[in-house]
């Protein structure tokens, strides 16, 4: 399991985020922030090679 680190947010931003966490359907503030970071990372990071992705799925019973 991944270890966690702390990152500081300004209090007003954190409060605004906290207000919408539940409404948006997240289970926690952490989950919300992680999702926001992930979404942007997906645009910025390099994708894994297609061959690697396909190799990892090999053997899944449902797929040929």
């Amino acid at each position: 399991m991944a270890s966690k680190v702390s990152v500081k947010l300004s209090k007003p931003l954190c409060d605004r985020a906290r207000n919408v966490v539940e409404k948006a359907g997240y289970s926690s503030l952490e989950e919300f922030i992680e999702h926001a970071v992930e979404r942007d990372l997906a645009k910025l990071e390099q994708s894994e090679s297609k061959d690697d992705l396909i190799r990892k799925m090999k053997g899944l019973g449902y797929l040929e």
Binding site: A42, E48, L53, M57, Y62
Partner: peptide, 13 residues
């Protein structure tokens, strides 16, 4: 079981 990489259309676990 699968999701896709929206940039490459590559399916992944």
């Amino acid at each position: 079981f699968l999701n896709r990489d929206l940039r490459t259309y590559a399916p992944e676990l």
